[in-house]
């Protein structure tokens, strides 16, 4: 098992090195996030929203719109590049399939953490967003991000095998992620408004359950996807 986790870490590290040198995914994601936040802020922020009673709702929706679409811009890159650069074959020959999945999941998580941090900072700076419960907010974004990473990683593996990859990624990911997004928006709203942990608990449980279910499905189905 030690070999296995070392292999998974090696995959993540290799992708991180490549990402730092090319910045394909990071640039696409972060620029999208900045453009979204700036565009939204022009009309709504920083003072426009604070006068609004529904500010928490609006902010939560916009925050997840920015995260979701920015993520879909970048998260398929690591898999798609393996197929396009024809390195997938050697990776299949050398690396246990699940180590590839976990490595890619790890790199996508890293990318998402960077993205969520940036989006949060932008919203605080440009929209004057006040986070009433920072702990809950961080937990929601972490759980939501984890679920997003788990689901998008396996879909990226699917999409990498198909033509018209970038358009297909959104089409495939959106219906699967809808339950996650709905709950994440709602729980983020609770965190922004500060309605308390009790209000957020069912949402957090759903996020965790969704993430676990998709993770289990991914672990079972990844080898088939990867070896197709």
């Amino acid at each position: 098992m030690r070999h296995f986790f070392r292999a998974a870490l090696a995959v993540a590290r290799k992708d991180w090195q490549i990402e730092l040198r090319t910045r394909y995914a990071l640039n696409a994601m972060l620029l999208f996030a900045v453009v979204t936040a700036v565009l939204v802020s022009f009309r709504l922020g920083p003072l426009g929203l604070s006068r609004d009673r529904q500010a928490a709702t609006t902010l939560a929706v916009l925050l997840w719109v920015a995260i979701f679409f920015a993520a879909l811009n970048g998260l398929s890159r690591t898999f798609v590049r393996e197929e396009e650069m024809r390195t997938a074959a050697l990776l299949r020959l050398t690396t246990p399939p699940l180590a590839v999945y976990l490595g890619k999941l790890l790199i996508n998580l890293l990318l998402l953490v960077a993205l969520e941090l940036l989006v949060t900072l932008l919203f605080v700076a440009l929209m004057n967003a006040r986070i009433a419960q920072p702990g809950l907010f961080a937990l929601t974004l972490s759980l939501g991000g984890l679920g997003l990473a788990v689901a998008t990683t396996i879909i990226a593996a699917l999409v990498a095998k198909a033509d018209g990859k970038s358009a297909l990624f959104t089409v495939l990911a959106f219906p699967l992620l809808l339950p996650l997004l709905i709950v994440a928006v709602e729980t983020t709203e609770v965190a922004l408004a500060g309605s308390g942990w009790a209000q957020a608990a069912p949402g957090l449980r759903l996020l965790a359950a969704y993430t676990l279910a998709e993770l289990a499905a991914s672990l079972l189905l990844f080898e088939r996807t990867w070896e197709s």
Partner: peptide, 13 residues
């Protein structure tokens, strides 16, 4: 195979 995998992922979601 890939379409079957997608159908199963959807049925989990």
């Amino acid at each position: 195979r890939l379409s079957a995998i997608y159908a199963l992922l959807a049925s989990v979601s």
